[in-house]
């Protein structure tokens, strides 16, 4: 059994644009250990989100293999395993507008099974942990952008995932709010021992992760940096 929570070997993805084939990812190699935080930066259109979708099993690579906790991910079974294994945070929050913050967090658990008292208590705890205990009954439309993203973070952690994939989670937030969301994300992952793959444009946010990678011309390369955080 591998020690890595996430292992990607030789991932490649090509898109068809008219008669042209555009190679977005070529031979991507990535290993993420348990509890490790990794940031991925790159220019716009470099394929960061495509890579994250491949890592989440939402998209199929043209070549290469993907393993979650040492078990290869087959596209057919990715959906079933995803709810247990990983959480995702998106730039646009994607909260369900018809239900309140508490129910949005609980929705991640609902999709696995009918939530009991334990799941409801965890949803309340997570909302308290992201500082929104008082706003649990508020609809997404009654929350600010930063508050919505914090609800999305709580939802991503609801099922105690072993891996959290965050796709530019501060892209729609101001600098100060974005900083606090990243701090929260890192703290929660550190506390729960959840591995984190953070896609970001923000150099400062990337610097807060243990390892930084840069996606360029479809290949992930390590970024040489100074002293890194422990997590």
């Amino acid at each position: 059994m591998s020690d890595f929570i996430l292992t990607a070997r030789g991932l490649a993805k090509t898109y068809q644009s008219g008669d042209r084939k555009i190679g977005v990812l070529r031979n991507v190699e990535l290993e993420v250990s348990a509890g490790e935080s990794v940031s991925i930066r790159g220019e716009s259109g470099s394929g960061k989100s495509t890579l994250l979708n491949l890592l989440a099993g939402l998209d199929t690579p043209d070549a290469g293999t993907l393993s979650w906790a040492g078990t290869p991910v087959a596209m057919g079974e990715a959906t079933r395993r995803r709810a247990d294994f990983l959480g995702m945070v998106f730039q646009s929050f994607y909260l369900i507008p018809e239900i309140d913050a508490f129910q949005n967090v609980l929705m991640a658990a609902r999709i696995r099974r009918a939530p009991g008292p334990a799941e409801k208590a965890r949803a309340r705890d997570l909302l308290a942990r992201v500082g929104l205990a008082e706003r649990a009954s508020h609809l997404p439309s009654q929350l600010s952008g930063g508050e919505r993203q914090r609800v999305a973070v709580a939802r991503a952690l609801m099922n105690s995932p072993r891996l959290l994939l965050a796709d530019e989670p501060t892209g729609n937030l101001d600098e100060q709010t974005g900083d606090s969301v990243i701090e929260l994300l890192l703290d929660l992952c550190r506390e729960s021992g959840t591995s984190l793959v953070l896609v970001t444009h923000n150099l400062a946010h990337a610097a807060k992760t243990r390892r930084s990678l840069f996606l360029h011309e479809g290949v992930l390369r390590p970024v040489a940096t100074g002293p890194r955080p422990v997590g």
């Binding site: 989440a56 939402l58 959906t79 079933r80 395993r81 995803r82 709810a83 247990d84 995702m88 998106f90 646009s92 994607y94 369900i96 929705m107 991640a108 999709i111 696995r112 939802r155």
Partner: peptide
């Protein structure tokens, strides 16, 4: 459409 995508990302099957 995006909410449907989110449900898939949360582990919902197409049948559900």
């Amino acid at each position: 459409t995006r909410e449907i995508g989110l449900l898939g990302a949360l582990g919902a099957s197409p049948r559900q």
